[in-house]
Amino acid sequence: MSVKYGILGLLAQQPLHGYEVKTRFESLFGGTWEVNFGQVYTTLQRLERDGLVEPADGRGDRAKLTYRLTGAGRAALERWLAQPEAEPQQLREEIHLKLLLTGRLANGNLPGLLAGQRRVYLQRLKDLAALERRARQDGRGDLVLVIKSAMLHTEADLKWVDVCEDELGEHGDNADSPKGGPGSEAAHRID
């Protein structure tokens, strides 16, 4: 996701100066996305360079400069909003790397890794549920929807741990040639 379009979306509602962009950006996400002022500032400069935003009232004190969307900026925002998301699936969590490496190490403890991960996901579900309740109390129905996305992803993560454990249970005897390792890939190709 992109700070760029976040800023364009905020400026589409009304002209703002840099600091207002930062605080509104963070409040839009209910504090789940913290941006630093430098990031907002350099993004605004690039957007201005590309003709997507412009100063609302001439050039003055840089810190107080108010920006507004240009026609090109609005068009870019609308194009972006109209596109469904088809980015590659992102598995950013390091657990995937840990899983691949643990299966290849002589003293690797895959069951232990998975058990620890299950606890993290269970606790995360509990914490997200509390966050959802708070968002609801604050009247942030839109944020509730975002948090529900996070909860469903966490439920999927838990199912994934189950699947890993099932696979390990079935293939547990040959722990030194993990399923999906180089050897089994070669075997699959010969098949």
Partner: peptide
């Protein structure tokens, strides 16, 4: 697994949208 009571964590400690 014992679970800790969920309370007082900041939103950004739980969830990053980006």
């Amino acid at each position: 697994a014992p679970l800790a009571t969920a309370s007082g964590q900041s939103a950004s400690a739980l969830l990053r949208i980006h």
